[in-house]
Design a protein around this nucleic acid. Structure first.
Lengths: 339, 339
DNA sequence: CTGAAAGCGCTTACAG
DNA sequence: CTGAAAGCGCTTACAG
């Protein structure tokens, strides 16, 4: 009735604790006959090991490394803050979490950092992946070496990473299109897309998702060419200012990157277009309240970080995860459901 | 550099482990002089106790009881399923989770069950609260006796429960109004509200939130009197059928309770009103895909259950929770971001 | 009021 | 190839 322990298995199989342990941990040096006897006992008693007690005995402390870009925008700052906060809590759970800050969008730097971890051998690695072949190669080398690797926020499809902790950016773009289309109604009108850079995978995916739903569901809305504001408020403001001068009748804007401070500044009070933006920051939150932005799609940095850690831990000690718990949602915020 | 343990404290304070333990656990029988010496050592070394090692030594198994209504609708079935699933995983974390199924909407039965727990003394209780004075009194008696109590899905304001694991239903109603108002545009039109029962707190709050935003933001939309379908498909279908016969020009429906199968049946293909419903079930998901429902507001039963358990555990061993992690979001699903 | 010793479930040298 | 003993960080009788 009470949970069986290693002692029960040892007794049942007629061996010592050490032998049970060897079988449990698939270590060599056990006659196959003995091994089988122990395995039968494990099965017969329905033994399931107490991972924590094991870690306590091992004196094991999980060491996880987060490779984070040093971008100076609200979202990345928040992400780094969440990793920081998790690191503080982590010590209680026998985990040590280290952060390495890398120059943003720098594939070479990220690849070098990954290769460095190959010798450092932490218990797991999380990274905001830069979408480049050398990163893919370096990442695969880590996985090959048996290191658990999780991509965070930005995925690296085609690589062998174990898990992606982030949102489905195609779905985000489609959702933005659906909302914008519904908000705009049936009159023909013009819609603009402001991206950070289409060289970045998540931005590209959002744009694609948005365009595909616009074409199929809202053919009466005309899409202007995608603008790239580099996630910089200044550039966003300049580009949008020019666009509004050219198309004073612009009816909708999908801002799928950062730099929304510039967007707000470019909008004039009269004849405001419907705006859908990404990431709940101080700027977008205020704009939502003030009615300058109509909806914000958000990924919760805290969820993403905690999920990445849970998954790394599970990978490190071979336990399983609750899939539903690790699915990162696209939050939709209107002024009415702000947290 | 390494984390200090009880041994370090004992050495630093010049006492035995037993004494350190007594101070750590605020047990009596320590001279105040000694106690102070130990406390100083704890502070000086920055000791923080390893909760798991402590539980291992204590042989402690947390016992949590979930009081759940036996309602036969998709959401409550899913909720019970999630508790079940969590119970299976729980044994690995030294927790035992028991479920007690109660007749739905039965305040007396719930109060009796709560008083029963007063003598059973589990380590924590979670309940889908029935909004009635006798439940409040019983719940407060448990809290008074030192039992951690968490309300789940349906809160009991004015009670002394430690935590509520559920969504803000006012905000949900406001959000529904905002979406529906935006989807309907500027032409004057009629809108209906279908509730389960206004005697249930969450339904009442959703209706209130919806009405308030409708009045202030969309005065051109006329609200018809609230219908109460008792969360029964049959009743919902009948009521809605009659309503549509009377108001063939009905433009929008906010279905804030259950029984949406009936709603789908009542809708005719031609001249479909815009519909916003609650809870992502097989029915609402299909209807969303088919374009019969335009948006679904959802509370994630899995999140709610896992959150309730985390909070109960934290309350039971006096540790702290990550507030942001325990805030239950209102998910908004369009056909484009279905999980 | 205080401490020495055994034990929770597991692992790890070390001997044999 | 196998086992006895000590130990991870904490708690709990039991003695004194």
């Amino acid at each position: 009735m009470t949970k069986p322990t290693v002692h029960d298995i040892a007794a049942h199989a007629g061996v010592s604790l050490a032998t049970v342990d060897r079988v449990l941990n698939r270590r060599p040096g056990v006659r196959s006959e003995t091994r089988i006897r122990v395995e039968e006992a494990i099965a017969a008693l329905g033994y399931v090991r107490d991972v924590f007690a094991a870690n306590l005995a091992k004196g094991r402390i999980y060491r996880f490394v987060f490779l984070l870009p040093g971008n100076d925008n609200s979202f990345m700052r928040a992400l780094r803050g969440e990793v920081e906060a998790a690191a503080l809590r982590a010590s209680g759970d026998r985990m040590r979490i280290e952060t390495v800050e890398l120059p943003p969008f720098d594939a070479a730097a990220q690849a070098v950092a990954l290769y460095g971890l190959l010798t450092e051998k932490p218990d797991g690695v999380a990274l905001v992946a830069v979408d480049a072949p050398e990163v893919r190669t370096a990442l695969d080398a880590l996985v090959e070496a048996g290191l658990p690797v999780v991509t965070l926020v930005s995925d690296l499809p085609g690589s062998r990473r174990d898990h992606f902790a982030g949102i489905d950016n195609h779905a985000a773009g489609r959702t933005a299109a659906s909302l914008l289309g519904r908000f705009l109604g049936h009159t023909p009108a013009k819609v603009a897309i402001m991206a950070g850079s289409l060289l970045v995978r998540d931005h590209r995916e959002r744009a694609e998702g948005f365009q595909s739903v616009m074409q199929t569901d809202f053919p009466h809305l005309a899409l202007l060419p995608v603008l790239e504001g580099r996630d910089e408020p200044q550039q966003v403001e300049a580009l949008l200012g020019a666009l509004l001068a050219e198309h004073p009748d612009l009816a909708g804007i999908y801002s799928l990157g950062a730099g929304n401070r510039g967007l707000i500044r470019a909008l004039r009070a009269e004849k405001r277009p419907v705006v859908i933006a990404h990431e709940l920051t101080a700027t977008t939150r205020d704009a939502l309240r003030a009615g300058q932005i109509d909806a914000v799609l958000n990924q919760d940095a805290g969820h993403e970080v905690r999920s990445a850690i849970r998954v790394l831990k599970a990978l490190a000690d071979g336990s399983s995860v609750v899939d539903a718990q690790e699915r990162i949602r696209i939050d939709i915020f209107l002024k009415d459901n702000l947290p």
